[in-house]
Amino acid sequence: MVFWFNSPPAQRSVMSAFIPVALLLVFCCVCSLLLGAGNVGPKEAFQVLLGQGTDDANFIVYELRLPRTLIGLVAGLCLGIAGALMQAVARNPLAEPGLLGVSAGSAFAVAIALAMGASTATLPAELAQVGALIGCLCVIAVTQMQGQCNDPIRLVLAGAALTSLLTAMTSLLLMYNERAADEIRFWVTGSVAGRNFEQLMSLAPSLIIAFVCVLYVARPLASLALGERVAIGLGYKPGRIRLIVVFSVALLVGAATAIAGPVIFVGLVVPFMARALIGVDIRRTLWLCVPLGPLVIISADVISRLIAQPAEMPLGVLTAMVGAPVLLAIVRSQRLPTL
């Protein structure tokens, strides 16, 4: 144990970090089922898990807490992986998935739908995803037009420009539509409450596509960390690698945003934690992000249920309040790892 903490992160085995984090995640998932909204205490909820619960308790655990936990799992998985990919491709440890215009794109798409009369409850999950994809395709189109897709800095700059434009347009839209403004207020702060299984299932195909892309792109992306020309020398095409990464990030963030709203900081902090535990190699970081992302979201969600009882604090607010100090600590730390 002491030996583990004294060894350099890059020399620890992935499993030695993966297993404890995964166990912690299982523990948090159980907590998430046992604790929280509804008049069902941990004891009653535990009986439900053993198959001896009352109808009321069954309803609360299986219809409210279970979907919420699953959504936390999926959203955390998506955001953690998307964050790690984004930071690797932008060569910037402070890059966030939202930088590509992904979050702004999905928020804008949702705002349009709401302004046209939809309600957050019936909003199809794919909508936010389509918005995310369109957002990042615009960014890529701009950089491609200049023939500069090979430049990660331009990619981020174009993303930032598009993000502010889309955010401004969303505000404008909501200014003229009070009902939509009310509806989106809850959505924008991010919450895993009130979403259901159907939304989750409808995202499955796109998530499978995204994960296949990630499996394919992990090795080329790792070689890109050695330098642009080294990657070309090894037979990879950096421009194509970046396109695949950006596409996967859009699918992942779009999915997470669709089911949990724009949850910030998770995509930024999770890869940081993963690197602190097992080093900067993207192939290792990605593996650890698999349990770490859900762990961060679900533990944040459980805490948000406990401290704001009986109301529940929106997840986005909590992740921001926890994430900001963590980020400041990272900024103040002695040295940032180079990516």
Binding site: P8, P9, A10, L226, G227, G233, V280, D281, P337, T338
Partner: peptide, 15 residues
């Protein structure tokens, strides 16, 4: 054909 360019990057934590 193998290539060793000038602008190689040695990432942290790779042996």
């Amino acid at each position: 054909l193998a290539l060793l360019p000038q602008d190689t990057i040695s990432p942290d934590g790779i042996n």
